[in-house]
Amino acid sequence: MSRDDPRLIRLANEDNIVVLGATIHTGETVLVDGELITVPQTLGMGHKIASRAIHTDEDILKYGMPIGFAACDIARGEHVHLHNLTSRYTPIEIMETQA
């Protein structure tokens, strides 16, 4: 039986993030690895949340492979994106969000 909300996609068992398969709105609760998490902000499909606590400098794993490392400690359920994930490849600039 899945320990994740059906709107969350776990791409590999060893991943420490799950991907949203649908938009999840502020304040909604989702089951992440068996634990109910309240989503702090509305996040669209394709965005990621931590499926367990991730420590500073730890690799962030998607598809079972590193997509960068944690720039700070990340709590379970927290949005994982440009603000707390740093690429090990070429650093990318924080881009302006579209108006």
């Binding site: 990621k48 440009l82 579209q98």
Partner: peptide, 23 residues
């Protein structure tokens, strides 16, 4: 290789985008 639109769609790094194709 990496656009603003990619980041808006939830992608956080070039390796993440590439792994999506590589999958």
């Amino acid at each position: 290789s990496f656009s603003n639109g990619n980041a808006e769609g939830g992608l956080s790094s070039i390796e993440e985008k590439s792994l999506g194709a590589y999958a």
